[in-house]
Design a protein around this nucleic acid. Sequence first.
DNA 1: TTGGGAATGAAAACCATTACCATTTAGGAG
DNA 2: CTCCTAAATGGTAATGGTTTTCATTCCCAA
Lengths: 155, 155
Amino acid sequence: MPGRNGKGPAWWRGKFRGCGYRLTVPRETIIEVLSKAAKHLSAEEIYLAVHKVYPAIGLTTIYRTLELLVQIGLVFKFDFGDGRARYELAEGPKGIRQHYHLVCTNCGRVIDYTDFIDEAKEFLSQTMKALTEKYNFKIANHLIQFYGLCEKCQK
Amino acid sequence: MPGRNGKGPAWWRGKFRGCGYRLTVPRETIIEVLSKAAKHLSAEEIYLAVHKVYPAIGLTTIYRTLELLVQIGLVFKFDFGDGRARYELAEGPKGIRQHYHLVCTNCGRVIDYTDFIDEAKEFLSQTMKALTEKYNFKIANHLIQFYGLCEKCQK
DNA sequence: TTGGGAATGAAAACCATTACCATTTAGGAG
DNA sequence: CTCCTAAATGGTAATGGTTTTCATTCCCAA
């Protein structure tokens, strides 16, 4: 099961070489951090995590690498409206990660839900097919967010 | 048909008074601009539009008012990842506006689609009901975005 | 091993948004 | 209608996440 431990020939290396990008310690470490993170991290959180392993890292490199990873399609970039972007691996061991969120418009809390996805699948596949045809738009990913008040903020 | 012209007793005034907020020229003008805009505008675009009618307007007031309108639920705030937020009236003459987008990850173009919404309705109502129950989350609005490459950027 | 372009990191620049504060204004009380 | 007071405004300065600049370092193909 390649890519599960830190040493094996990671599944994403081919993507780098294929695009002509170099494999460097900062880049590997950033992907390592992202793959171990359960949730969407901010640039600063990634910086701090990488810094523990590779103290020479610069914040600039974090941003540059993330931009590159987003470009390649390895990473997904979110914006929940709190002024800082969040990043998450687009792919995981179980395939494409899903991005379904409940966003509290009062406190900013974000709940990732993974339920009710089967119901979404059919609707999504139909809609994507139709949109692709009508707008000639090549869909690579999608995002569904519900906004409202979380349990605490309803009081 | 109240609220269609600039003088009639606009449909949103009650919302202001009810919350204890004052009716001012800047606020009225900002809502006016938003209601005439077909699409999501950035703060600066709103500023420029208001400035034509009310040159004394300050950018600070634009931001403050938009924040208020978002709070009240009159306006919806988007973030497409280009570093500036976009704003759009949450309600329109035809009721709640829908927020379904195709976002090009290459050029940043945003396509609003209004097709295939009926198919979404059933799925959404079911999912919202289930999410509301499971997470005790009071859903007020939702957003569906598909990311990919637009027609031009596929070449 | 070596050459050269890609990648890096520190510091400065950038820019949308927010905070500060003195002034003006809406709108209810009298 | 006039006063009064808290709310609202707007110019300016500050904030803070992100990007640019540029000299230095590093990957890697030959």
